[in-house]
Each structure stands twice: as C-alpha cells, then as structure tokens.
Design a protein around this nucleic acid. Structure first.
Lengths: 191, 191
DNA sequence: CGCGGGTTTGATGATGCTCAAGCCCGGTGG
DNA sequence: CCACCGGGCTTGAGCATCATCAAACCCGCG
C-alpha cells in the first residue's frame, strides 16, 4: 500500500529506500467507509490526507442548506481544509468519503516535524501546492468562462471515466447546479 | 525598494543580510505603466512577478469576447500563469497593470537556480503556494456559496479600501457579472 | 416485496444578462 | 481657458438561463 506513495513521491523527488522508510514513519494508514466524515463543519481540521485508493470530496453547506462540493480527491491527491489546518481554526467544510478509501494521514505537528527532518519534503510539498494551485486556477477559469451546460460537457469530455465513477447528484453539486438541471442537460444531448 | 521584499521574506523564513544579497541578485526590478501587458494570450509566460507596489490583474477573454478577471495582485503578492510558466505552454491568460507598478521579476530558469542554490527558498515558496491555494479555495467557496449580489457585498465589507482603489468595471469583471448589474446592486443599497 | 435514494419530467418564476440610450466627468487639444 | 471627446457609470425594458417545487419513476437492497 505504501508502495503507491513511494511511486508517487519518486515522480517529484529522488529518495533512497532508507529515507523513504524514515519518511513513511510519519504517516498513518487509515481506511474509511463510504459516507464517513473525516472532517465536519466547526471542527478543527487536524490532518492532511493523501488518497492511496478511493475518492473523497470536500464540501460546505450553503445558506440555503444545500451541500456544495468544492473539490474531489482521487488517487494521488492530497486534501485538507488548508485554512483550518494551518491556523487551527474551526473549519467551514466537511470532508467525506465518496467511495470506501485507503488514505495516508498526517497531523500538522507531524508534518512540521517531517519538513524539519527532511528538507527534501519542502520541495515535494512545494510541487504539490503549486500543482493544486494551478488546478484551482483552471477551475476558476472554467467556472467563469463556461455556461453551466458547457461546464458539464467540458468535464464529461475531459474526464469521462471520472463522471462515470461519481453519482450524478455529486457531479451537479461540484458544478454548482441542481440535479434537475443536470438531468435536463443530459436529456437534451441524447435527443 | 528591495527592502519591501526583504521585510516580506522575513515573515516566512530567517535569512541573513548576506544571504539576502545573494538571493536578490536573482531578481530584476521592473516598472510598468497602467494598462501595460506583462503577458498576452498565446505567449509563453516566462516570468514570475512579485508586486512591490501597485496592482496587477490576470484575466482571460471568454467565448463572448468579454474580459474575465480571475485574480488581482497587490503589494506582496506573486502572480504568473502557473500552467504556462511551469510547462512552457502558450498561455490562455493576460497579465496587465491596473495601476502603474514596481515589480520583482524572475524567469523560470532563474527561479530553478535560486531554489537549487538556496534550499530555504523551497520553504518560502511552499508557504507562498500554500497561501495562494488556500485563498483560491476560499474564493471558490464564495463563488458558489453566495449570490452575485451577496458576493459583491462580501467583497465590499471585507476589503472596502480595495474596492475603492479599483474601477467598478474591474470589480464586476472579477466577480463575474456585468457593470450594469453592479450598478443596479449599488443603487439598491443606497435607496 | 416494499422501501428509499437517486434520477427524470414539467410548470412556474427569479436572478442576472443584453441592448440601447443618456449622463457625468476628467483629460486633451485648440 | 474653454470645448469637446470618450471612457466609465447609470437606467430601464425585454429576455435567457437556471432554480424551485411537486410528482412520478426506476432500481438496488434489505
């Protein structure tokens, strides 16, 4: 299971087997069931999660009481509420398993220690945040640049296997519209 | 002018005066005039910019031909098109001065050298990207969580001096709606 | 077999856009 | 110093996109 993480790390930095042993001792492997929450609104997000297998999502409840998904995390992605994690403030988000999942988990204190002890991990996380930030930039571009209908088709064309994998009401929640409207869009295409 | 950058750096990492000298030699100071472009669509974004003074914005042109602003950069913020910068691909964005500005500039090659020569800067940029990513997450939350009207009021309440500083049509462009609608919202409040 | 979560369908309505026109005001040239 | 020009802001009428609400349907699971 750890091998997945090692292969992932090696895409960004060079590390020896012995160093990997040391690094991986900072993490804990956990398994979660479908719909299980790793973080709920109001709690302080104490951990950073790496998806070995499965799928998580981050969402919040808007003023109308509707769940709005802001982010999915599948294999080889990290997820946390960065504001809450970094400043130890109550979170405005939930993090929940969409599918049963296997995760690596690290607390903020442990991560600080890890970065102290293994400066090469500063470089690794610099890459990770840079990648995540770039992805967020593109998402913002699509949100503003495309109509809701075009946004759905864009997602469907670029990540068909992902759209297959996830229930429709969560796709709608991620794209920021209602399941009813998504259903209408799909009906239009098939006619 | 460099002192501004030094003070900024010291908020994240400890560096000596001599190390700062070495680090700052990797950067170039440039000045730009209002409306001057630092990046245009189709070009490869070769530099990363740090705002010492003034204001920049990043935008793209949507399918209707309208400029959509995705990001502002004021004092102590970095800006680039991360996708283009990192992968040396043609950019889909423009970067333009909103106000006359003084900037630090560094090319990708120089930044790579800098990170190689001064590993402490890996830590610095890890913080910078982490902060930028967290900010992007919150922006996404507001985009989806608030109506357009509420989104404007939120910005106006939290950053009144910023809303003052920037022309209204750019605020509208940043919030993703038309200047006409912004005008309507403002009229409503004052009645 | 029945229940319940997820998807579909359709009628109605609000939010926010488009287009067109007028206004305000600061800058520039004569 | 004045006149005009043009960019930005405002106003209003009509309209498109997408939400809301209610009901029916489908199907996997207990």
């Amino acid at each position: 299971m750890q091998d997945l993480f090692k292969a992932h790390l090696n895409k960004f930095i060079m590390i020896t087997d012995t160093e990997f042993e040391a690094i991986s001792s900072f993490f804990t492997i956990i398994s979660v069931k479908k719909k299980q929450n790793l973080l709920t609104e109001g709690a302080i997000c104490r951990s950073h999660y790496f998806v070995l297998q499965g799928c998580l999502r981050k969402f919040f409840i808007n003023e109308k009481g509707v769940e709005q998904t802001t982010e999915f995390a599948i294999e080889n992605w990290w997820v946390t509420d960065h504001i809450s994690y970094e400043h130890r403030r109550p979170s405005e988000f939930f993090i929940q398993a969409v599918e049963p999942a296997h995760l690596l988990m690290i607390t903020k204190d442990k991560q600080d220690e890890l970065l102290q002890a293994h400066p090469t991990m500063e470089r690794y996380f610099r890459f990770i945040y840079q990648r995540a930030y770039a992805a967020a930039q593109m998402r913002t571009k699509y949100i503003f640049g495309l109509s809701k209908e075009a946004f759905y088709h864009h997602l469907n064309n670029h990540y068909p296997e992902f759209v297959q994998r996830i229930p429709q009401y969560l796709i709608a929640s991620y794209l920021g519209f209602t399941p009813e409207y998504l259903s209408e869009i799909r009906a239009k295409k098939n006619s």
